[in-house]
């Protein structure tokens, strides 16, 4: 997973650098186009288009039947039952192309999430830094902060969760590296204050596959490391679209989702795809 992420990281970094401070909706639109085209292409290539078309026709036919026999309740229920069957069949038919569409989509989305799901700390803002350890070694753990960051509280140990938490305050903008020491072992975690929009890493994961997939921004901790993972509570990003503002890490995803759908709908006919 890390091998793949290390290839993808510079690609996304470079493209996002190009887009600089463009509004999020525009960036979503730009990313949605290639993804939609790919998804449509894959759907056309890997699905049974004739069967899908036939199934859809059956569904339409049932809908017409409901309209046609609108005072025959048995006919209506029968048509509905039939629709249910066809919808299930339809779902089954879109399974195969989904297997092709899903992985690239997922990769693209997790990387984009690192850019658009959160925002960097601003000077004066506080954040929680939580280190989850593999064993009960809390008391021996030290956090070294570079200048520009101040610890507001000393580390608080939560033994049942193997977690040590600090509240820190950002003083000056900059890209920082937090150092965690336990004896002669060391673990690091990036933290960003201010600056242009860029890749953030709310979690540096361990070797766990799902966690690596989910948080691709930093190299995972090694097998031998005493740290399970380290989290930084970045604020959720604010996305504005058509005058509406929303603060949520999912906001960009909603925009992205809607845009891919609109683009896919617009392109399905020119691309000759039966969805």
């Amino acid at each position: 997973m890390e091998a793949l992420n290390s290839i993808l990281r510079p690609i996304f970094d470079a493209t996002n650098a190009l887009m600089g401070d463009w509004p999020v909706w525009l960036v979503c639109l730009i990313w949605a186009i290639p993804l939609s085209v790919f998804a449509l292409w894959a759907f056309k290539k890997f699905s049974n288009q004739d069967a899908i078309s036939a199934t859809k026709d059956k569904i339409y036919a049932c809908l017409f039947e409901i309209r046609l026999f609108n005072d025959d309740i048995r006919a209506i229920l029968r048509a509905q039952w039939e629709i249910l069957g066809h919808v299930l069949k339809y779902q089954a038919l879109s399974l195969k192309p989904m297997i092709w569409i899903l992985p690239p989509t997922l990769l693209m989305m997790v990387h984009l999430h690192a850019f658009y799901g959160f925002r960097a700390l601003r000077p004066g803002e506080e954040a929680l830094v939580i280190a989850t350890l593999k064993a009960e070694v809390g008391n021996e753990l030290r956090l070294e902060l570079p200048s520009g960051l101040t610890a507001e509280t000393p580390g608080v140990w939560a033994p049942e969760m193997h977690q040590m938490a600090w509240r820190i305050r950002a003083d000056l903008p900059g890209d920082y590296l937090l150092r965690f020491r336990k004896g002669d072992q060391e673990a690091t975690k990036t933290l960003r204050v201010g600056g242009r929009r860029g890749r953030l890493s709310p979690e540096r994961p361990g070797r766990d596959f799902v966690a690596q997939l989910e948080w691709p921004s930093e190299e995972p901790f090694g097998r031998a490391s005493f740290v399970q993972k380290i989290n930084v509570s970045y604020p959720e990003a604010v996305v504005s679209f058509l005058g509406l503002e929303m603060q949520s890490q999912w906001a960009w995803m909603i925009l992205f989702f809607v845009m891919t759908m609109v683009i896919a709908l617009a392109l399905k006919k020119p691309m000759g795809v039966e969805l």
């Binding site: 998804a39 989904m98 569409i101 989509t105 759908m261 969805l275």
Partner: peptide, 10 residues
């Protein structure tokens, strides 16, 4: 989750 087209189809 996948969105494009198929999401709409669903």
């Amino acid at each position: 989750y996948v969105g494009p087209g198929a999401g709409f189809a669903l």
